[in-house]
């Protein structure tokens, strides 16, 4: 992986007073799956739109190179794009719409790819229905097909899993993995941390316009060390935040996640836990991406108090 599909250097984007993206640099290696995470309004979509060439970075703020070329406008047949919301003509029939998008990407062969993709995403029976007759999930699948059907080298997907039930989410996930297998670079944004954990070679987190995480999941988790304990007690563990050496408790109901304070001893915590009740499960682990996300995006109580 010597080539970068996307190379962003020191790019900023300002809307009026609001700095949506602040001095961002990023390398997306070709052939990888890159996950963009971050709270709503943190700059994910703006970054994706800049990569698409829909938005230009602030003048003089840096450069973006996509597939080895500086961008001139958004039209690029080597890129496929799935916008965050809709993006389909509601009155067009599924087949006509896909054909139109293929034509726009300069392709001359229609029947084969359209039939293949419709069959693959279980939409064959809907080929002659209008978009407005489809459910949200089906429309989302059509939208996905329109982003990848022309076999782009780079696919940019803004929230590809939103609105999908688990079955359809799996179908899309398989399709994305399949694209990567064929050498396509995939960049997608998501709010689903477990998806990002499982699928992405690299995870990039943006918060308030700034890059806060970037790297493989391992490298990110390593930064946070083994400071997390997952535990299940036989009875309710409501009072666990009183334990010494525990900084924060996340209660998932059946399972509690304890974040240890710096230098806390796991043995010591276990001893305290045993005094609370029978320990059914005890696991020392790296923090999940979810936990890391929340640590960054949720202000600490003392910070809130200080602010």
């Amino acid at each position: 992986m010597t080539n970068d599909a996307i190379a962003i250097d020191n790019v900023s984007k300002t809307f009026g007073e609001h700095r949506a993206v602040d001095d961002l640099s990023l390398r997306v290696p070709e052939g990888s799956i890159y996950g963009f995470i971050g709270p709503n309004g943190s700059g994910k979509t703006t970054t994706l739109r800049m990569i698409m060439g829909i938005y230009y970075p602030d003048p003089g703020s840096g450069s973006i190179r996509v597939l080895g070329e500086a961008l001139h406008g958004a039209d690029n047949d080597a890129i496929g794009y799935l916008p965050e919301e809709r993006g389909l003509y509601r009155k067009m029939k599924v087949r006509d719409l896909l054909r139109f998008y293929l034509e726009l990407k300069g392709r001359r062969e229609f029947k084969g790819p359209i039939d293949d993709w419709l069959a693959r995403l279980d939409l064959t029976g809907w080929a002659h229905r209008k978009i407005q007759e489809l459910s949200k999930g089906m429309a989302q699948k059509v939208q996905f097909i329109s982003a990848v059907i022309h076999e782009p080298r780079l696919v940019i997907l803004d929230e590809p899993f939103s609105g999908l039930d688990p079955v359809n989410a799996d179908v899309i996930r398989d399709a994305i993995v399949d694209l990567r297998r064929k050498g396509t670079t995939v960049v997608f944004s998501t709010h689903d941390m477990s998806v990002a954990e499982k699928m992405c070679d690299y995870v990039f987190m943006i918060f308030k316009g700034r890059k806060v995480l970037d790297g493989t999941l391992d490298s990110i988790q390593r930064r946070y060390g083994h400071d997390t304990i997952r535990v299940r007690l036989d009875q309710n563990g409501a009072a666990l935040n009183q334990l010494t050496g525990v900084e924060r408790v996340t209660d998932f109901g059946r399972l509690q996640e304890l974040r240890l304070a710096d230098g806390a001893d796991t043995q010591d915590v276990l001893t305290q836990l045993m005094q609370h009740g029978r320990v059914a499960h005890f696991e020392i682990t790296q923090p999940s991406l979810h936990d890391i996300f929340v640590r960054i995006a949720r202000p600490e109580p003392q910070e809130t108090a200080g602010a």
């Binding site: 698409m52 958004a74 039209d75 916008p83 993006g87 389909l88 003509y89 998008y101 726009l104």
Partner: peptide
């Protein structure tokens, strides 16, 4: 329609 349904973003990824 193209503007509010965000079709424009998709179109502009293909044509200027």
């Amino acid at each position: 329609e193209e503007k509010t349904q965000r079709i424009a973003e998709v179109l502009l990824g293909s044509v200027n």
